[in-house]
Design a protein around this nucleic acid. Sequence first.
DNA 1: GTGAAAGCGCTAACAT
DNA 2: ATGTTAGCGCTTTCAC
Lengths: 332, 332
Amino acid sequence: MASIQEVAREAGVSTATVSRVINNHPFVSDKSRQSVEKAIRKLNYEPNMMGRNLRTSSTNMLLVLLPSISNPFYSKILQGIQDTARRKGYYILVCETDASSEIQSFFINTAKQQLAAGIISLDPSLDLEDVLLPQLQDGYPIIQCGDSPQNDTIPYVSIDNAMAAYKAVKYLLATGHTRIALITASDDFRYATARHEGYMKALAESGIQPREEWISRGEVDYEGGRLAMQKLLTLDELPTAVFAIGDIMAIGALKAIREAGLHTPSDIAVIGFDNIPFSNMTTPTLTTVSQPMYDMGCSAAQMMIDKLNQKEKTIKSLILSHELIIRESTEL
Amino acid sequence: MASIQEVAREAGVSTATVSRVINNHPFVSDKSRQSVEKAIRKLNYEPNMMGRNLRTSSTNMLLVLLPSISNPFYSKILQGIQDTARRKGYYILVCETDASSEIQSFFINTAKQQLAAGIISLDPSLDLEDVLLPQLQDGYPIIQCGDSPQNDTIPYVSIDNAMAAYKAVKYLLATGHTRIALITASDDFRYATARHEGYMKALAESGIQPREEWISRGEVDYEGGRLAMQKLLTLDELPTAVFAIGDIMAIGALKAIREAGLHTPSDIAVIGFDNIPFSNMTTPTLTTVSQPMYDMGCSAAQMMIDKLNQKEKTIKSLILSHELIIRESTEL
DNA sequence: GTGAAAGCGCTAACAT
DNA sequence: ATGTTAGCGCTTTCAC
């Protein structure tokens, strides 16, 4: 691999001039510029990132933390992050946080080692402020994406989860349902509690007393949704509709309903949340609240890069819009 | 961020000694080692990767090329790669190749810039040998994962696709089907042609003349599978079974069958390929050939790291085992 | 407009 | 067993 030295020698100029050309600095004569460009082409030269980054004590890599790469919600956000980052010349380092427990120290080192210029976390269960921030340099840029953080000192990109859930349940109420159950997860996730709130608010507005037994909890996956639905199916008086806080859980619920010999939506209507691609491939297709996953990723990356380029002093949180998508799992 | 200089000063030794401690070199007195370790803790020191990598002209980053992060097949492999890499102290740079056309130059630069120590490609349509290799330094490590390359000079991790397809179709034949259609993709993908071959071989063995009209092609996605199935449904004599070369296409086929008012498996049985998580969540659940996606990723990463550590001179290709998983879409 | 030279943080000869 | 020193490739003052 050619170095800047060799290019300089080939072009008959100093390394400083080569550097100026590479970095598009003004005050380089056309003559020098051309001979440098010729030398670069001839030697197939590409600046060594380690040298550059060491010298400038900066990097063009961003660290993305996410619970699971194979979860379609997170992978869609990651797609947005990576597209935007690449377009701006940034690389993405991916780190899966669910995998093991030494993860924390591993990714904190990434920052301490000056490998990554900033961190975008998609992990809703990571305590960014109390655990992560104190270990990082002051002012180290960090953004939460896909949920709001526990405390509002960390900037984030998300949607209005309470409002979205409220609208979903309002829709069920408007189509005549009154016995509406909720399938949710542990209260550790901010988005889960927000959607729970929206559910409660919608019921309250309609004067419906929410019953304790209508709240069924499970892991945020297919089996979790299936088991949570099975619990609901043991009730004496069955709900006529279910709002699940995530599509994967909703899809598990669809399965449980079918296994019980009941039909969706005629016996029990189901609404999910996220609008993952697969929600449109189920039988019946799933009514859901669409989150702009890809856009959330793009926005988070853009915000991070603006901050790194000092375009923005501080990062301001961003609330993107959501949309209720009505499909077969709720219409009669 | 503390540097090695500051640690050396704090510990009252030279930077060389600190370096020896960091890198677990022998010939350091217990006394020195302890005072260095104490200083490291006190200053919260972590070696700067740019400095280290520049000096050693090596890196602990691997570049992974994949068509789409949100495709569950690739994201599951990526998960295996990333898990294994992290455990060995390597970082993963992710690059989505479907996104745009400047991609090629972008990732080739990653190698030229000495950013990544090696490349693992999950992209079956990338011409690694003729396009990528010539632009890289001689001996630059590269592995294909999830498919075999066009020419066998690039080491790869895959399964025996022809055999797997053969067994899938054999199973359909054994359960009494004789009119078996194939839903496949363009012949640009090695895995697609291999599975096509397996299909042909199984039919030939049973003395069945494969009909041209039974081969239906489409994009490797849900819509592609759906459209390919719709084409098959226009035939005068319908097939009684369909083998799709990917689960996503198979799921699209299930949809088309249902839309035509027919039932799976009673009217038309369906077999997919890959065993992505969703194949077990469809209605009916999908019979499929299981690829060890996660393991393929782990193996590719391990092979790459062994090569980088000079444990292996050359990388040997690896064929992992597959398995036919029988679910509801084929049983009567 | 251009070049000389310092130095980013680290490792590895080499010297002691 | 430890320290001195050179230098990886680059950018950026500073001097001309």
